[in-house]
């Protein structure tokens, strides 16, 4: 299967290591893809609060571009996934609305017919590649590691826009992948909560408290690292963790935050540099060491 690749702005901007590691992992898996280079930002929900139709139009434009390519969209960002899924649901539920947007797109010769499928890499791996195929690429069994999942709001809510009814496995897809590497998935309460990034620049105290709660909880539960399919969560959980740590009783947390492809890359035995692991604010050194010392994967 080929995909219309939509990396999202943050995978290029704030967390360039995500794009690097995702490309490395996808290459290893042989996932064929072509980037939708002309696509705009999804609006991340921010644009939508100013003008929902504008946000929807930008996304429908992306869907139309993918439709022309005749393949599903694949993203590596939870927020992009959610915003696109919601926009897609809105236009599919309201053909008149879609027609209005198509009028705007007609100027550049685009029309969205409503057939584009949008899937995060996380779902592509679980639903299409399959755990068995994935595991064939693993050279390490990360059995000594504990990873705390952290989904990001937009890939879990609203559940009816994300197809959880038809694809119930999506609800636990991140744990499924963690366990596929041989690691233990920590059952942290914060895994589906908000990382705080959207209000980081508005109410920093609250945003930092969220970082502190979620990373602190995972750390207390014995996590070696947190794994997220959302680069926006990563920005906050990693970048602001030192500041958030001041809110913990002992003043420190030191929980590395891995992008989903970085964890997979470790299981594939890739080098930290290939995965951009040196670029994190919170050092991933210990996790890298434990992964390297892990037994070889059987399979």
């Amino acid at each position: 299967m080929k995909y219309a690749f939509y990396p999202g702005c943050v995978a290029r901007g704030g967390t360039p290591e995500l794009l690097v590691s995702a490309n490395a992992v996808m290459d290893r898996l042989g996932i064929e893809r072509e980037e939708i280079v002309s696509a705009a930002c999804t609006g991340a929900g921010v644009l939508q609060e100013r003008n929902q139709k504008l946000g929807d139009a930008l996304n429908v434009r992306t869907f139309a571009l993918a439709e022309q390519m005749g393949v599903p969209i694949m993203t590596i960002c939870s927020t992009c996934q959610g915003v696109m899924s919601q926009a897609n649901r809105r236009v599919l539920q309201d053909p008149e609305y879609l027609a209005e947007i198509n009028t705007v797109l007609a100027e550049e010769g685009l029309e969205y017919k409503g057939t584009t499928v949008i899937k995060h890499l996380l779902w592509v791996l679980v639903e299409e590649i399959g755990i068995e195929e994935l595991q064939k690429t693993f050279t390490k069994e990360l059995s000594g590691l504990n990873f705390a999942p952290f989904y990001g709001c937009y890939i879990v809510r609203p559940s009816d826009a994300l197809g959880f009814d038809e694809n119930p496995e999506r609800e636990t897809s991140l744990e499924t992948l963690i366990e596929a590497t041989g690691a233990v998935a920590v059952d942290n309460d914060g895994k589906t909560k908000c990382c705080g990034l959207p209000i980081l620049l508005i109410n920093q105290g609250n945003a930092l408290q969220m970082v502190s709660n979620h990373t602190g909880e995972a750390k207390d539960m014995g996590a070696d690292a947190m794994v997220t399919p959302c680069p926006l969560c990563h920005l906050n959980l990693d970048g602001y963790q030192p500041k958030a740590a001041k809110r913990r009783p002992n003043g420190k947390i030191d929980l590395p935050i891995l992008h989903l492809p970085q964890m997979l890359g470790l299981a594939m035995g890739m080098q930290p540099k290939e995965l951009g692991l040196q670029r994190h604010i919170i050092s991933a050194k210990e996790v890298i060491g434990k992964a390297a010392a892990s037994p070889a994967a059987v399979g």
């Binding site: 709001c153 559940s159 908000c194 508005i202 945003a207």
Partner: peptide, 12 residues
């Protein structure tokens, strides 16, 4: 209104 994180828990 600006303190909402848009996490959609309430919607869900």
């Amino acid at each position: 209104v600006w303190d909402c994180t848009r996490c959609m828990q309430c919607v869900e």
